[in-house]
Design a protein around this nucleic acid. Sequence first.
DNA 1: TCATAAGCGAGACGGTACGTCGTGTCTTACG
DNA 2: CGTAAGACACGACGTACCGTCTCGCTTATGA
Lengths: 195, 195, 195, 195
Amino acid sequence: MSVIPLKGGPAREAELLAAVLDVMRETGDDRLTPDAFVAWARASKQTVYRRWPSKAELVVAAFVNAVSEVPAAPDTGSLREDLIILLDDLLRELAELGDIVASLLGELRRNPDLAAAMDERYIAARRRSVLDVFERAAARGELAADADIELLCQLAPATVFFRAMISRERVDRDLTRRLVDRVVIPLAGKPANTV
Amino acid sequence: MSVIPLKGGPAREAELLAAVLDVMRETGDDRLTPDAFVAWARASKQTVYRRWPSKAELVVAAFVNAVSEVPAAPDTGSLREDLIILLDDLLRELAELGDIVASLLGELRRNPDLAAAMDERYIAARRRSVLDVFERAAARGELAADADIELLCQLAPATVFFRAMISRERVDRDLTRRLVDRVVIPLAGKPANTV
Amino acid sequence: MSVIPLKGGPAREAELLAAVLDVMRETGDDRLTPDAFVAWARASKQTVYRRWPSKAELVVAAFVNAVSEVPAAPDTGSLREDLIILLDDLLRELAELGDIVASLLGELRRNPDLAAAMDERYIAARRRSVLDVFERAAARGELAADADIELLCQLAPATVFFRAMISRERVDRDLTRRLVDRVVIPLAGKPANTV
Amino acid sequence: MSVIPLKGGPAREAELLAAVLDVMRETGDDRLTPDAFVAWARASKQTVYRRWPSKAELVVAAFVNAVSEVPAAPDTGSLREDLIILLDDLLRELAELGDIVASLLGELRRNPDLAAAMDERYIAARRRSVLDVFERAAARGELAADADIELLCQLAPATVFFRAMISRERVDRDLTRRLVDRVVIPLAGKPANTV
DNA sequence: TCATAAGCGAGACGGTACGTCGTGTCTTACG
DNA sequence: CGTAAGACACGACGTACCGTCTCGCTTATGA
């Protein structure tokens, strides 16, 4: 019946995860129904559910697969430049995958396993990148000794997320620069007047 | 059949909205089914759907109804105290209604009307409170002339939301105080006294 | 609000019953919903339900009201002519009100009160007419002494009803004449060969 | 979750149709609700609605399924005996399924597809049986040459239906014998032996 | 070379949520 | 008090969604 032989094995896995995003883009947003998905991917329900035991797990897997290709933390030698690069990356991500994140938040809240996977494979990874940037800046002596790095590294991403997810305000490169130049750098840097 | 006469009119509306949260608390989280709800509230589907054309609209209405009772912005005479009060209020709200917000974010993203209602009745109202606090502080001369108030007033709530909704980190009074003392006040305050 | 003063009293009753048939004719068939009815009749639910405790009772009342205007049994002096007149009357009735009868049969079957009302005010009345005709024929000596009048008087109406209600076959004046000339008269009349 | 595997395919179809009558018998009469039915049959709404697009179609299908098992027309060699067997069969059917027929008549009247199915699978099949009986009688020379067979074969069933459905009079074996002996046989038989 | 198993596409299925519609009761305001 | 207007409780009805299961086919691997 099928003229095109269908692949199996791990290659299929990536293909299916990519199909998740394709269907979401196609149909507009996060309205991904199993039937629509398997029809689009020419897959069987069994093939999908064998790998990911629920739709939420599938979507999380597709999401972390999509964002896992982002390169390592930048290292321009400047805290400001590194932060801007990271935040602009986040901007792009949310523009493309924000719908998925939003649709997952409810599910994550009541599924600890899923939340753990999302945290480990996405949140923690990004946090690591930001911390790397800050640690390099500290090594370069760009940071105040008493800077609350844990809080500092969260302020800008939190604000970007807040505006993208909750308050639905505009999020653009102007915002990321304001955050870096008026919030993070002033709080992180050695105060000029103490020199 | 019914021995207890049931209320009608606008009084019923508030009763129904309160019932939404009751059922959600009862059943654990956002699993509010129309049948369970009308059974709990001794209401008819029509009675509900006449007022709110979908479950999402009902839940949003219940949410904004629940948070609309919060009193006006605090005015202790101190920016720091005012901010701490506001953030601790936010803390309480998210502890109680965070599940609802999380479960709504996906829906809000694809329903502009719903997002508008949520923004107008919740986000914008809270923003107004924070802005009031900052404006009073400015009037008292507590703020630097060039402070980016729009950004400043968003940093702390955004971080609280981020940790409560996305990164699922602990959110407590210690956090709100760190945010005020190490982020908002340092960025807002006049650097005059350090000269 | 209403510029036209609305009637009350028994006159309204007949008006409402007539409205039942009007709405049924308007909307095609027996799909009579209480809301549609009261809107059409500019009446209140209470006004209707005070008089007829259920939709079925209302429809039965409207039906018997509609068919109660049929004149008395014919008396042409000829059994054949009388029967044809009666059957053609039945034909007209079913053409106009057959939908109502059909839609009522299920309800009548499980509502003895309704069935009794229908029987008394419609079935029995018609039966009386047919029996009258037969009795006059018997008085004229047109009937065989051993004719099973009870059965005879039912054959033709039963066949008309069967074709109109159950087998949905064509029912016309040709059929009524066949019934009279080939069934009822041969069975009722004195057999020619016995003369 | 389900430990007992459930059948699929065409076997399920007959099972479901049988369940319709079971539930109807259980709940008394035609009060068949989709929810009660699927619960009783351990079926899904989709499973039912995929096959029969409405409750009415389901009930009609269950009815014709139930009556389609009736054996072929009797052939005792005697028109009278054959007719009595057929009418007594009809009697049993109406005693068991009369409620269903009555509750369907309204729906059949406004749904031509349903009426066609009912006619083809029930009415026409029964008519064929009666015609067979008459044709065999004609072949045996039991019928008058000018007998209106089309009408004749309808008289007795019509009367049985009329009394069972419309006039709600008693329908028993005495009636069927009266119909055969005083109506059908006298009208059908050759008058030769009376000469 | 053939058979035995494992993965797959296809899709029916059980279960449940969701929103619409029909029926009869009740309340409110008006005449 | 009876009425018009219409909100309401109750429950039937049909659609959509999620995850499980079965069937037959293809493809690898084993004898």
